[in-house]
């Protein structure tokens, strides 16, 4: 007798819940990184389930680039308040104002600057574990990262010195000043996240669904027209029906033309699409093949 079967999503959820509980039990001050995007929404749900009916035993941290979609910020505040979690916002603008980082030019992508803000926030609050929603299927450097990824006192990742992680026995031992990044959704694919959102009936920010928006076509991507993204020579502002596949710094996150107004329709479109999430919508990764690996070494998400 082989007994009741466990579906893919339930297996992935069980594995993620296990990782969240291990870290909460073994590390002193965890925090959950929440961007308001679908991955962190799925992650937050997993974390809530891990401890229910008790409240989440750690706060939620958002690194605000200052270039966020207003719809996402609105969603973030509402979602976190409804659940009664403690929200900490670390602002890249504050890091710039304090001279911790330098902005190359106003309106340039702040993706890389986020790293400093994140590390400063971890240090300020003495967090020793940060949960993130990153997945191994996102790109090649991530494919080798551990679920519990050790960071030295400078927040850096050393891909050649990763701790072995056999089975799901996580080693969360660190020295003062060091921390771990924890990726409970490591083994989820983009479609798994969408299907989980659907199965759990999770609410998403409205920009994930088809809406009319003024966009500018640049390097084959549709960027939202905003105070930071203005048409340059020859570019036109188009009025298009679009949705987003990821949410990030709006100066580098591309929209896709879409008719999908609900989650089921979004999933069908993605199943039919043949371009990866990052390839389609993240300008920052396209610059160099090893772009992500470099940023991760520095301490990026």
């Amino acid at each position: 007798m082989s007994g009741p079967r466990v579906s893919l999503l339930r297996s992935l959820e069980a594995e993620a819940v296990h990782a969240v509980r291990e870290v909460a039990a073994e590390l002193e001050r965890p925090v959950l990184l929440f961007s308001g995007g679908k991955d962190s929404i799925a992650l937050l749900r997993v974390a809530e389930k891990a401890f229910r009916p008790a409240p989440l035993p750690f706060p939620v941290l958002h690194v605000d680039t200052g270039h966020n979609f207003p719809e996402v910020l609105e969603f973030r505040d509402r979602r976190i308040a409804e659940a009664g979690h403690r929200l900490i916002v670390a602002s890249v603008q504050d890091s710039i104002d304090a001279g911790r980082v330098k902005e190359q030019e106003p309106g340039a992508s702040r993706n890389r600057l986020q790293t400093r803000t994140l590390l400063d926030a971890l240090e300020e609050h003495r967090f020793d574990a940060a949960f993130g929603g990153a997945r191994r299927d996102e790109e090649r450097a991530r494919a080798k990262e551990r679920v519990l990824s050790f960071r030295d006192e400078f927040g850096q990742w050393e891909p050649r010195q990763q701790r072995p992680e056999p089975w799901a026995i996580y080693n969360g031992r660190i020295r003062r000043g060091e921390h771990v990044r924890v990726f409970p959704l490591s083994n989820w694919t983009e479609l798994d996240v969408w299907r989980y959102v659907e199965a759990e009936g999770l609410e998403l920010p409205s920009i994930y669904f088809a809406h009319r928006r003024r966009v500018i076509e640049r390097d084959g991507m549709l960027l939202a027209w905003s105070q930071w993204v203005q048409p340059q020579d020859g570019e036109q502002v188009l009025d298009e029906q679009v949705r987003y596949r990821t949410v990030g710094d709006l100066t580098v996150t591309g929209a896709v033309r879409s008719e999908a107004r609900d989650i089921t329709a979004v999933i069908s479109e993605i199943e039919a699409s043949n371009v990866s999430e990052r390839g389609e919508t993240r300008a920052d990764d396209r610059t160099s093949e090893a772009a992500m690996e470099d940023r991760k070494r520095e301490g990026y998400f």
Binding site: R140, A143, K144, S186, T189, E293
Partner: peptide, 19 residues
């Protein structure tokens, strides 16, 4: 084949997960 060091050496060193 994943990380840069491995690309240079042309062999897979660490475990890489594929889906």
């Amino acid at each position: 084949d994943g990380l840069r060091a491995e690309r240079e050496q042309g062999i897979t060193i660490d475990v890489a997960y594929r889906f």
